[in-house]
């Protein structure tokens, strides 16, 4: 219940934050954003840094850019949205732009934790902590988002798979780097389906799906699962089965059937409420549900001719 002792430093800017991380490097500093992964870890003894760097007051890290880079103000193009690292879940849900152009993200956010946590938790914190069963890692992976980070060596852009360690490597964020922004490409056909763990509220199984289509044919598919393994994972067999296929329910169902193909139940997470075997079993159902949500949006968008931003 009670965090261990640490020093607290409030950063006034990104540069200041980097400077503080450098200066207190010996204290194993951790970045405090919304605090909804870090503070529970501190209270339960899972983390004991001797210094925290609070980035909560850096306004440059907050906000959803309508085509603009929230940090620099530079236009990042109309085909993606930039989300500042400190943007809360509630802010994401309130964004019509994201609702429309990155529904996989808003879908996942809408079932994330609870009302109070959505008011406080941030996308940057969520992706950095990447708790097993967290919803946003799956959504950002399926969205093919890019995570921009700043560190002692400057700025770099990391694709979600590398950032989350979903490509088999270790998560790419280095010490003394902090997430500044998440850029989400616009794809209307996206959806997320979640079996919520009855106690933790994280995903027992969560599947995020994004489809790119051309005239009723699936040209690209990205399907990612959370809750099953320690890290999020792409469901390659499902994706392979989808690409080139027509957008119709039997295709979806057949593809979703393959969701558990590449995951050994013995490798899957297991607890008192759901064994690894059961989680792998659920994958197909939740993949299908996520894909159906994505397909529904293809259908909803089929009649529309307006370009992005028309209604904002």
């Amino acid at each position: 219940m009670f965090p261990p002792q640490f020093d607290y430093h409030r950063a006034s800017s990104i540069d200041d934050a980097l400077e503080l991380l450098e200066r207190h490097a010996a204290d194993d500093p951790r970045i405090l954003a919304g605090g909804h992964s870090l503070l529970p870890d501190l209270k339960n003894g899972r983390a004991s840094p001797r210094a925290l760097v609070d980035i909560g007051e850096i306004d440059a890290l907050r906000g959803i850019g309508s085509g603009a880079d929230v940090e620099s103000g530079a236009d990042s193009g109309a085909d993606e949205t930039a989300i500042g690292a400190l943007t809360t879940y509630a802010d994401i849900l309130e964004s019509d732009r994201l609702q429309r152009h990155a529904p996989v993200l808003t879908d996942a956010t809408s079932v994330l934790a609870d009302l109070q946590i959505r008011n406080r938790g941030t996308i940057g914190g969520n992706l950095t902590a990447a708790e097993p069963g967290a919803d946003l890692p799956a959504a950002t992976l399926a969205a093919d988002a890019t995570v921009r980070v700043r560190g002692p060596d400057g700025e770099r852009a990391i694709d979600a798979a590398a950032f989350l360690g979903a490509d088999g490597s270790e998560p790419a964020l280095r010490e003394r780097e902090l997430v500044t922004e998440v850029r989400v490409p616009h794809v209307e056909a996206g959806g997320y389906a979640k079996k919520t763990h009855p106690a933790s509220g994280y995903a027992m199984v969560g599947v995020a799906a994004v489809l790119e289509t051309d005239d009723g044919t699936i040209t690209d598919a990205r399907v990612a699962a959370t809750g099953v393994l320690e890290r999020v994972v792409r469901l390659a067999a499902v994706e392979d089965a989808l690409v080139g296929a027509r957008v119709e329910s039997k295709t979806i169902e057949a593809a979703a059937e393959r969701a558990g193909e590449t995951i050994e139940p013995a490798d899957a997470r297991s607890d008192d409420h759901a064994s690894g075997e059961f989680r792998v079993h659920l994958l197909s159902t939740y993949a299908e549900r996520a894909l159906e949500r994505a397909v529904d949006r293809v259908a909803a968008g089929a009649g529309g001719t307006g370009t992005a931003g028309d209604l904002e």
Binding site: M1, Y8, R10, L32, G35, H36, L39, P40, K43, N44, L52, D54, G56, A90, D114, L115, Q116, I117, N119, R120, A199, S200, G201
Partner: peptide
Amino acid sequence: CESSKCGACTVELDGDAVKSCTVLAVQ
């Protein structure tokens, strides 16, 4: 609780309902 689950500590912070067990006072 100590895991930000029960909500008994909910207060309004700058107009938002938040769990005051998951916010540092200094923040």
